[in-house]
Design a protein around this nucleic acid. Structure first.
Lengths: 333, 333
DNA sequence: TTGAAAGCGCTAACAG
DNA sequence: CTGTTAGCGCTTTCAA
């Protein structure tokens, strides 16, 4: 693998001149430039980014750490970040944390961080207190649906508002008993599940209803198979419900399958609303009514904050809640 | 950010000794070790991986380059690689190429490669000849459904066999006119589309049928929306068909939606088989009959080959075609 | 068991 | 316009 030195030797100039040519800096005579470029071509020289990063202290790369890429919401987030980053000429790598404390800590280890100019971390496994304890001065913006320390920038969806919109829509379309699948009965839960359950309560309160606590159904894990099982079990147990707010689209897909397994039709017997507006949700039959999380806004805000941190100017941390919107399709009447 | 030197100063030893302690090498007295570790703790020292990579020539990281993470097939592939890599203690980063020549070339640039110990590249945009021209000696294994230069390791699905299985299943279940959505009429196409179209022909030939060329439908891009439009257009044009082999599950989902838009029922009026067995396919209503690409096998073979390249022993390149299998669900009778 | 020296490949700063 | 010097943080080599 040829180095600057090799190119310098081959073209009879100093390494510095080669470096200048390679980096397109001015103040190099045309003749020299041509000679150097010829040697670069000839030897197949490519800059060693490791060395450059070490020297420059920057790598031109930012990292996005998400639980898993095979969770469609995060995949769509990652793709959106990639697209948004095209413009700035930066490079993105995606790290997977497995949604675990350990994975997220590892993604944040100074060691790894030093390979990146900045990090967007989607926090799922770490507790707020654990995040607070990190005293990294690396450019870092937190994403995710749970409270975060005030000292760090954080971008979060309008979880509660989205859940309220979804549930209110079900009630407005005539559902009288709206279950929440993936909710929690614990009022102390301040994470995504807690916020979305709160929105479900809000929608009831708005119209003077008191929701039946028995309509709060698991799972805690938002997989399609578990959600499907939950729906079947609810029907089998004789639970009376005619609407479902599923805390994610994946849960909604599982619920719809489970209802179908028990001979119930959507939206005729039970109406369903999800949350995430996955790409696939539009093309289900019937199309899934859901909450569009406006990932574009999440990404725009996150990158704005990260750019700020990377630029090095000191400023107070921001905590942003991005707006969401209801998308009505066929799973509600 | 403290360096080895800082730790050395703080603990009154040389940088070399600190390095030895940090890397857990033997031949360091217990007393010294303790002193150094205390200083490491005190200063919050973490190795600089950039420097270590530069010096050691290895980073402990491998890269998986795929078109996009929001394409579910690739997302599932990426997740499978991550899982498989857990064991070996290596770190994976995912790069997105945008399915373009440029993106793939950029992922392959020596510059980037030098940050990784090895690369798994899913080739979509690059032509075989362009890949052949790369004279990189980096550990590299190619993935993807097109022919690749003999000199490089390559893992490919059983595309033709899968398409044959899918189509044969449709014929066996009574479909008389099986369209292929996402196929190509050009016999010269040696890529994924060509191979899957060939499998569709094979299945017909096996039972003595000659497929109607008009049943070969676009799109070339495998998006749900385009596939949905294709299905609608086919119905509107009065095309006579009672079975569809969709070249991917995403195409199948689009086709099913499009058929539904035109009032046709699946599987009653038209039976459908996909290819990819996405996570969501099992939970569609009805469940999608499809080809399981056995991503686990693809991953296992790829990593085996990559480990071989990374170990440095010279060996002939291997070209592997992994087996696939039919998964029967509700979209066929 | 410990340390000094050298250098991985690159670029900032300055000199010519 | 071009070159020299120095050093990013680490590890390999060899000497003490």
């Amino acid at each position: 693998m040829p180095t600057l030195k090799d190119v310098a030797k081959a073209s009879g100039v100093s390494v510095m001149t080669v470096s200048n040519v390679v980096n397109g800096r001015p103040r190099v005579s045309e003749a020299t430039r041509q000679r150097v470029l010829a040697a670069v071509e000839e030897l197949g020289y490519q800059v060693n980014l490791t060395a450059r990063s070490l020297r420059a202290g920057r790598s031109g790369t930012i990292a996005l750490s998400i639980p898993r890429v095979d969770h469609p919401y995060f995949a769509e987030l990652a793709a959106a970040v990639t697209d948004a980053l095209q413009a700035s000429g930066r490079h993105l790598v995606v790290e997977q944390t497995g949604a675990s404390r350990e994975g997220e800590l590892s993604a944040l280890s100074q060691a790894r961080l030093q390979m990146y100019d900045g990090v967007l971390l989607s926090v799922v496994g770490l507790k707020e207190s654990e995040v607070a304890r990190l005293h990294s001065d690396m450019p870092l913006v937190l994403l995710g649906e749970k409270p975060m320390p005030l000292e760090r920038d954080h971008v979060m969806l309008g979880n509660r508002e989205g859940a309220r919109l979804a549930t209110a829509h079900l009630i407005e379309r005539g559902a009288r008993r709206v279950a929440i699948v993936g909710g929690t009965p614990k009022s102390g839960n301040r994470g995504m599940v807690g916020m979305r359950t709160a929105g479900w309560r809000d929608a009831h309160a708005e119209v003077g209803l008191v929701p039946d606590e028995r309509l709060i159904l698991p799972p805690d894990h938002f997989a399609m198979a578990e959600s499907r099982a939950t729906a079947r079990a609810a029907v089998d147990a004789g639970l009376d419900f005619d609407g479902v707010f599923a805390v994610t689209d994946q849960v909604a897909i599982g619920v719809i399958a489970g209802l179908h397994d028990r001979g119930l039709r959507v939206p005729d017997d039970v109406q369903v609303v999800g949350f995430d507006d996955l790409d696939v949700s539009e093309h289900l039959v019937p199309g899934l009514t859901t909450i569009d999380p406006r990932v574009d806004l999440v990404v725009a805000e996150s990158l704005r904050l990260l750019e700020g941190r990377m630029s090095g100017v000191e400023s107070a941390a921001e905590h942003i809640v991005t707006p969401v919107r209801l998308v009505v399709r066929g799973t509600t009447r």
